[in-house]
């Protein structure tokens, strides 16, 4: 992976007690989400209890890092100075094989080639010393 950029100027995620294990996982190149030990549901975003059965028996479970593009948009308007140099840039919603969806950026693909249902896998992007983002790239079926 590339070296973390000390001049990284894009917004960084707000770390909370609820989501810290998620970001710690990405930093260690592991995509983890919460799973209910009682009913096996896996979900996002992080919650204090299982949104399905309200059990507090929760484990952070490793996921495959693979999924499919569910929807996507292309930003042509500048909202963040840090993204200005990359306009137009994509934001995609990836449905993980385990079910939950994540918002992300697709890398290594022309915008015109993005398709719903496109198979993708995670790329760990170490944007700062502390933060690694989960991005996705196309893979073969």
């Amino acid at each position: 992976m590339k070296m973390a950029n000390p001049n990284y100027s894009k917004p960084l995620p707000a770390i909370s007690e609820l989501n810290r294990p998620y970001w710690d996982g990405l930093k260690n190149h592991r995509l983890r989400l919460q799973q209910c030990a009682a009913c096996a549901t896996i979900w996002s975003p992080p919650a204090p209890l299982c949104p399905r059965c309200w059990s507090r028996e929760i484990v952070w479970t490793d996921l495959s890092g693979r999924g499919r593009v569910n929807s996507w948009v292309i930003f042509h308007q500048s909202y963040f100075r840090g993204f200005e140099g990359e306009l137009p840039y994509n934001v995609a919603e990836v449905e993980l094989d385990e079910g939950p969806r994540l918002l992300t950026n697709l890398v290594g693909v022309d915008h015109a080639a993005i398709r719903a249902g496109m198979r993708v896998e995670i790329v760990f992007d170490e944007v700062t010393e502390a933060i690694t983002l989960a991005k996705f790239r196309p893979i073969a079926e």
């Binding site: 995620p13 948009v73 993204f83 934001v91 919603e93 719903a116």
Partner: peptide, 20 residues
């Protein structure tokens, strides 16, 4: 909204719905 990935503004949420 998910600013770390540049996802921001109400209109982007509507664009996600429109594409879908």
């Amino acid at each position: 909204q998910d600013p770390a990935y540049g996802m921001t503004s109400p209109g982007a949420g509507a664009a996600l719905v429109a594409r879908r």
